[in-house]
């Protein structure tokens, strides 16, 4: 598209959204990973409060650009449950189903959620990053391993109307997080199994 036409469209968009606030509600579909289930390991997930029904509100600095509130609902919780339930049986109650079953505790914390809008980056796309710290512990709460898992997504504004490109970038980043987490778990599963005996 000609740059003059692009400038006109951007100017018009800025005028339209300049004084408004946006409220994005995120929903996502993450497929069941194609991985091997470890029947003899039960995992208990502990999710950071920021992960459960996380609502992102921009800080003062960001508000000057555009006020965007992002409601993640339980998408992150569903993402982690979906991934880990493909590798292990999940049990978040205190009961131990079988004495033969080995237990691991998985603590998940959201470290960073960052994004760049087309206006901030002076390009035509939204970019989104997630960074999580994941602590793997044995049944005595002793740390076995500490993973850093990231996810990145970008989406060109292109033909998408309103917030759709931003929502897509967030969905892609969450899906990427799930993919990276699955592969990390697959790579480390043998070590974990050996460590818990």
């Amino acid at each position: 598209m000609n740059s003059a036409v692009k400038k006109l469209i951007i100017l018009q968009s800025l005028l339209l959204i300049g004084c408004s606030s946006q409220n994005l509600v995120i929903d996502i579909f993450i497929p069941k990973p194609l991985v091997k289930m470890n029947e003899n390991i039960t995992a208990k997930l502990t999710l950071d409060e920021q992960i459960k029904n996380f609502i992102f509100s921009p800080e003062e600095l960001q508000k000057r650009e555009a006020s965007i509130e992002i409601n993640f609902g339980n998408t992150q919780e569903k993402l982690f449950e979906n991934i880990f339930s493909s590798f292990f049986k999940l049990n978040n109650t205190e009961t131990i189903p079988n004495p033969e079953t080995k237990i691991i505790l998985i603590d998940i914390k959201l470290d960073k959620f960052e994004y760049l809008t087309p206006q901030a980056a002076a390009n035509q796309k939204y970019s989104v990053w997630f960074k999580y710290n994941i602590f793997i512990k044995d049944s005595n709460n002793q740390l076995l391993d500490n993973w850093v898992v990231t996810g990145y997504g970008e989406q060109e504004t292109g033909v998408f109307q309103g917030d759709e490109a931003f929502k897509r970038a967030i969905r892609i980043a969450l899906r990427d997080t799930g993919a990276n987490l699955s592969i990390k778990t697959q790579d480390e599963i043998e070590n974990i199994t050996n460590m818990i005996g």
Binding site: I30, P31, K32, P33, L34, Y152, I172, R175, D176, G178, A179, N180, S182, I183
Partner: peptide, 13 residues
């Protein structure tokens, strides 16, 4: 295809 083979054929994997 990407859904059926998730997470092995994603952009980063």
């Amino acid at each position: 295809f990407q859904n059926l083979f998730y997470p092995w054929f994603e952009p980063s994997t």
